[in-house]
């Protein structure tokens, strides 16, 4: 199946609300997302107005997650008043285009907390294992 053009094949209504969102394009166990602009009330499976980029959430061999953004078109659709969904806003925040999304900070400190807890648990286990040996 050939891919639809990046200019999109969906019908366009000027007054309808737009949204910039991630649309899952991969297959089973292999997520891959297009960053697309579409009508807010339209399903992700329906044709989009325009594709603005892509996001590969699986790290490549160099441990990098690749994001492509057509910033010129993103600016255009933001100017048209398009709504940005949270995952896309997070990506745009990390790229330095938007301010960092609050959810990114939350994820970061939650990850740090679990890390701390894991380390504490590990130390406790080690401490428990040590006394009988000595």
């Amino acid at each position: 199946m050939s891919l639809p053009p990046a200019s999109g094949t969906g019908r366009y209504f000027a007054r309808a609300a737009k949204s910039i969102r991630l649309i899952r394009q991969g297959c089973t166990n292999r997520p891959f997302f297009h960053i697309s602009v579409t009508h807010r009330r339209r399903l992700n499976s329906q044709p989009v107005i325009e594709q603005l980029g892509s996001y590969d959430p699986m790290p490549n061999t160099n441990n990098e997650k690749l994001v492509a953004l057509n910033l010129e078109r993103v600016k255009f659709w933001l100017g048209k008043g398009a709504h940005v969904t949270d995952p896309v806003a997070e990506l745009l925040g990390l790229s330095g285009f938007f301010p960092i999304h609050p959810r990114s900070y939350m994820t970061a400190w939650r990850n740090r907390r679990t890390e701390r807890e894991n380390i504490a648990k590990l130390e406790a286990e080690q401490a428990k294992a040590k006394p009988p040996a000595s």
Partner: peptide, 21 residues
């Protein structure tokens, strides 16, 4: 930019490419 509050967000790097025509 430096944002120490983002430490621990992800173990992988994010690379952003501007694909403007």
């Amino acid at each position: 930019s430096k944002d120490p509050a983002l430490v621990g967000y992800d173990t992988a790097k994010y690379i952003f490419t501007d694909i403007t025509f």
